[in-house]
Amino acid sequence: MKKAAVVLVLLVLTGWAIYDAFLQKNNFEKKIGGMSNSQAVEGLEVGNRAPDFALRTLNGEEVRLSDFRGKKVIVNIWATWCPPCRAEMPDMQAFYEEYKNQGVEIVAVNLTKSEKNSEQVTRFIETYGITFTVVLDEKGEVSQRYQAQAIPTSYVIDSEGIIRNKMIGPMSKDWMMEQMKQID
């Protein structure tokens, strides 16, 4: 009788431990999925709040990443001299044209410090017909903060400012569309 009671207690405790572990995993996933901006830790990993930054456009207008809170944002770190960056720009523009009225923004952070001059950036934007937001990282602070070791490097950020994915290398329109579907 004592052995049966001990076995029963062990079974109940094992079942409870499994249930508790499953419940905690689900609660963690729900917490990440529904994490508000104030609860998330700032960082560069998926599930972190994206670090805010302020940079200027070619027109001198200050743009902050936090200005786009409430929209899904792709932060793309690039340079005019970078072949993979050049390759992804037509897809980025096509994607932006299709999604800009659906609460989606692209913030292209140019590594201005690595350019010959800002005129190069202006010519590039005109040549490629870029209409999304382009900001100048003149001191390299944002590219350093976002750990862009290779370019292009892109971060997919949800409407709450939470990083949902990171891509090193050129993005395709299909990849960007899939990212937006995943964070709906």
Results as ranks from 00 to 15, higher is better:
143 S>K: 06
183 I>K: 06
55 L>P: 07
153 T>V: 07
37 N>A: 11
165 N>C: 01
121 V>Y: 00
168 I>C: 01
39 Q>K: 13
121 V>A: 02
122 T>S: 13
63 V>D: 02
130 I>Y: 07
52 D>C: 09
96 Y>R: 08
120 Q>W: 00
70 G>Q: 06
26 N>C: 02
131 T>S: 11
163 I>D: 03
22 F>C: 06
79 A>D: 05
73 V>Q: 12
16 W>R: 09
183 I>Y: 02
25 K>W: 08
21 A>H: 10
21 A>V: 11
12 V>M: 05
104 V>K: 12
151 I>W: 00
126 E>A: 12
44 L>W: 04
46 V>D: 14
166 K>F: 03
28 F>N: 09
22 F>P: 00
42 E>G: 08
95 F>D: 03
94 A>L: 08
8 L>I: 12
106 I>F: 02
17 A>L: 13
141 E>G: 10
37 N>F: 12
118 S>P: 00
66 S>G: 11
122 T>F: 06
63 V>H: 04
105 E>P: 07
60 G>E: 04
93 Q>A: 11
167 M>G: 01
91 D>N: 12
53 F>H: 07
14 T>A: 15
119 E>M: 00
183 I>G: 10
137 D>T: 02
126 E>F: 08
156 V>I: 15
44 L>D: 08
155 Y>M: 10
87 A>Y: 06
107 V>R: 03
88 E>G: 12
151 I>T: 04
62 E>S: 13
65 L>F: 10
86 R>V: 05
170 P>H: 08
78 W>V: 06
132 F>E: 07
20 D>L: 03
153 T>Y: 04
155 Y>L: 09
175 W>D: 07
43 G>Y: 03
66 S>L: 10
7 V>C: 06
173 K>A: 00
111 L>W: 04
17 A>K: 14
180 M>K: 00
23 L>V: 14
179 Q>Y: 04
64 R>C: 04
20 D>E: 10
24 Q>Y: 09
165 N>D: 14
147 Q>V: 08
9 V>R: 00
62 E>H: 10
124 F>R: 06
111 L>A: 11
126 E>Q: 15
35 M>G: 04
52 D>S: 11
151 I>L: 02
40 A>Q: 13
28 F>G: 04
74 I>F: 12
108 A>I: 05
184 D>F: 04
82 C>W: 07
32 I>T: 09
79 A>P: 02
46 V>Q: 11
48 N>T: 02
163 I>H: 03
5 A>M: 03
23 L>A: 15
99 Y>I: 00
54 A>R: 09
90 P>S: 07
57 T>Q: 07
132 F>R: 06
16 W>Y: 14
37 N>Y: 15
182 Q>E: 13
89 M>S: 05
52 D>N: 15
54 A>C: 04
113 K>C: 01
22 F>N: 12
67 D>S: 13
133 T>D: 10
139 K>P: 02
38 S>E: 14
16 W>L: 15
130 I>P: 05
20 D>G: 07
137 D>G: 00
134 V>T: 14
6 V>Y: 00
141 E>T: 15
147 Q>W: 01
162 I>A: 13
168 I>K: 01
32 I>H: 06
183 I>A: 09
152 P>F: 05
24 Q>L: 14
168 I>A: 05
24 Q>I: 10
86 R>S: 02
117 N>E: 09
170 P>V: 07
129 G>N: 09
33 G>N: 15
11 L>Q: 06
116 K>H: 11
93 Q>D: 07
116 K>G: 14
180 M>S: 07
